[in-house]
């Protein structure tokens, strides 16, 4: 097990370094150099040179990268071009909101996906099975952000039950308010992701039900319910864990459009705004943060996987 995990850890480190290089190099791919972008096109040469020195852009390529990554590791991702605030500060401001939305969305996703996946896999021809299959098809076809718009039109504009824009209400301060504020974007996200997860679970459960060891369990006289509970679900959950991990990763930086729809103050919205304002320091820092979080999450999924599957744990 340790060999496996250490190898994964090493891969994680390699990708993280590659990622940081890519994120850092991204500013070079932009039209014009950062100093010009920062100061505008009518800045003088000396002003530009001073700014370059300040941004650490006057050394060799390797030096520049090392100085940048050194600062980044120390928690210094530079200052936002636009607000002048430290990038780390800007990010930290948005992270609670993002985590809260991700938590809501993932909880809903699992609450819907697991029962739906099981019913669809085991009773595909029953009434419930057909209805839920319809839900899966619809959930996959409806774009998240349009569903968000629809929810706003119906629940906020027409019925006026819920606010159209979602502010961040921390759950530890006002649980009820947090639910009201976060429920609409969370539902909009979860309808899609739960369909993805449920379909995935249904497929692997369907495959597992055809395995020899399921037949063995039946031949032992195990009642069908226990065959599913004790033998099928654990095996079928293995590939599903991977998908859920990927989804959680995408919640932490990829809900850009849904945050735009609901004006929700999360990381995605911050990055989108930063891109619009050409605030590249913020974009750079934000993307680095998203990439690192995603990779870390994947590492955790690997650990979890090893716990679930003795074949990985014990070799």
């Amino acid at each position: 097990m340790y060999g496996h995990l250490v190898r994964r850890l090493l891969q994680f480190a390699v990708v993280l370094v590659l990622g940081s290089i890519a994120v850092w190099a991204f500013t070079f791919a932009l039209p014009g150099d950062p100093a010009t972008v920062l100061l505008g096109s009518d800045a003088s040469e000396s002003e530009l040179a001073a700014t370059r020195a300040r941004l650490g852009l006057d050394g060799s390529i390797v030096q520049q990268y090392l100085s940048w990554i050194g600062h980044a590791v120390g928690g210094d991702l530079g200052a936002s071009y636009y607000s002048g605030q430290p990038v780390v500060r800007e990010l930290l401001d948005r992270i609670p909101a993002t985590i809260q939305l991700a938590g809501f969305a993932m909880t809903l996703t699992l609450l819907i996906a697991v029962p739906v996946g099981i019913v669809v896999a085991l009773r595909p021809h029953s009434v419930a099975g057909r209805v839920l299959q319809g839900y899966l098809t619809a959930g996959l076809a409806v774009p998240t952000f349009w569903l968000g718009l629809l929810l706003i039109i119906v629940l906020a504009v027409q019925l006026q039950w819920l606010p159209a824009a979602s502010d961040f209400v921390p759950i530890w301060r006002d649980p009820a308010g947090a639910v009201t504020a976060t429920i609409l974007p969370a539902v909009a996200i979860a309808v899609h992701t739960s369909s993805v997860t449920a379909r995935f679970l249904a497929t692997s459960l369907g495959e597992v039900m055809g395995k020899d060891y399921i037949r063995t369990a039946r031949a032992k006289g195990v009642p069908e319910r226990d065959v599913i509970r004790r033998h099928a679900l654990r095996n079928a959950s293995l590939p599903t864990v991977t998908i859920v991990g990927l989804q959680l990763g995408s919640f932490l930086g990829g809900t850009v459009v849904i945050e735009a729809v609901f004006n929700y103050p999360g990381l995605g919205r911050l990055l989108y705004t930063a891109i619009g304002e050409r605030d590249y320091a913020l974009v750079q820092g934000g993307v680095l943060f998203v990439v690192a979080t995603f990779l870390l999450l994947n590492l955790l999924v690997d650990v979890f996987y090893a716990v679930l599957d003795p074949r990985i744990r014990l070799t």
Binding site: L30, L246, S250, N298
Partner: peptide, 24 residues
């Protein structure tokens, strides 16, 4: 595979956003 891992680590829409900024 490390290249693929790296691409996977950026959520699709964010990747597209950044790329459009870079590419125009």
């Amino acid at each position: 595979m490390r290249l693929v891992d790296l691409l996977l680590a950026v959520p699709g829409i964010l990747l597209a956003l950044v790329m459009i900024v870079v590419l125009g």
